[in-house]
């Protein structure tokens, strides 16, 4: 099962500069665990205390995962996942 994951500039240090990598998993949690195997350290940049970090946005086929189950959101072959850090501040 191949799912394309688009990696934002700030996290490309974990993917040797690659803008997109393939990963697999039937849920977002599983996908992130799979990413961590090949790109150690990336999981900690996405997840904190067992939940998606507040200022990291993840989209599955253009849907913000917060509206479709969060880390339990399901994935199928060919889905596209986009990771984007929030553009935010005080």
């Amino acid at each position: 099962m191949a799912i394309e994951v688009r990696i934002p500039t700030i996290l490309r240090t974990y993917t040797d500069g690659a803008k997109a990598v393939d990963a697999s998993g039937e849920t977002l949690t599983a996908l992130i665990d799979d990413l961590e195997v090949n790109h150690p350290g990336i999981k900690g940049r996405l997840i904190e205390n067992g939940d998606l970090r507040r200022f990291v946005n993840v989209y599955i086929n253009d849907e913000d995962v917060r509206f479709i189950g969060g880390l339990e959101a399901t994935l199928t072959d060919g889905d596209q996942v986009v990771v984007l850090p929030a553009v935010a501040g005080g």
């Binding site: 946005n57 989209y59 986009v82 929030a86 553009v87 935010a88």
Partner: peptide
């Protein structure tokens, strides 16, 4: 904060 949909 940019709206998440507009950000994408």
């Amino acid at each position: 904060e940019f709206d998440s949909t507009e950000l994408l």
